[in-house]
Nucleic acid binder design. Structure first.
Length: 229
DNA sequence: GCATTAACGCACG
DNA sequence: CGTGCGTTAATGC
């Protein structure tokens, strides 16, 4: 989101101008398209990634079902693979491109550590990233324990809109959205439930959608709806 | 009731 | 023309 902007503002006062683009400019970057994997698991152990642009899916393999499930997604300004900071044999989720092209800086973990020691702005970014990830997973866990599935879908849709939706007048639009199946695993429910909940919301005229986009007509009302029991 | 899975038909992209 | 979606029936808690 605008984490990087917040960082810039804060570090401007104390340590002078801080630009991530500049800081990471000498590291190689990769462009990944929709569905493309960033790096093989055993390789990605050695790196931290910085998402310059686009959206990346975070997937892990569900052995019983024999398929990939979506754990979450990342947006512009996020640091990915931070797990490798503390674990050198972590089970690292696969990172795949989603919707549009994603631009990713590739930073070897040892060089990343050095940069963090020296650079206050980067420290801010790391802490912001970490605390965001922690609250996200806590919220998701709470939701799973306390809400019924239809609420979870609605709440997911709210978060999804706030994170990647674009404002269009009083409405919001999500272009090239996740499939119902993906939204299902993101809100811990089945694909069919997502379909029916979305169609309910469509009938209430709170949203409209096709396979290409989701239009949120009334975000305020959707937020209220997500809290109903 | 609330939710999940299987299954099938259908049509969007 | 494939896979993503809409629906319904069967099953479990």
């Amino acid at each position: 989101m605008n984490a990087s902007i917040a960082i810039n503002n804060r570090s401007d006062r104390r340590t002078g101008p801080f630009s991530l683009t500049l800081l990471f400019s000498n590291f190689p970057q990769r462009i990944i398209k929709k569905g493309e994997t960033l790096m093989k698991n055993n390789l990605s152990k050695g790196y931290i990634f910085y998402l310059v642009e686009g959206i990346v899916k975070n997937l892990s393999y569900h052995a019983e079902k024999g398929k990939e499930v979506v754990n979450g997604f990342h947006t512009k300004g996020e640091l990915l693979n931070l797990e490798v900071w503390s674990k050198n044999e972590a089970i690292i989720p696969t990172l795949k491109g989603s919707s549009t092209k994603a631009i990713i800086k590739i930073i070897p973990i040892e060089q990343f550590r050095e940069l963090v020691w020296k650079n206050q702005g980067l420290q801010q970014l790391v802490f912001t990233n970490l605390s965001n990830k922690i609250s996200k997973s806590q919220e998701r866990l709470q939701r799973l324990l306390l809400s019924k599935s239809s609420q979870r879908v609605k709440q997911f849709l709210v978060d999804y809109t706030l994170e990647i939706g674009q404002r269009v007048g009083y409405e919001h639009v999500i272009k090239k959205p996740f499939t119902h199946e993906e939204m299902g695993s993101l809100s811990d429910t089945s694909r069919q439930t997502v379909t029916t909940v979305l169609n309910e919301l469509k009938a209430k005229n709170l949203i409209h959608f096709t396979r290409r986009y989701i239009l949120i007509r009334d975000l305020e009302q959707l937020i209220i709806e997500a809290k109903k029991s």
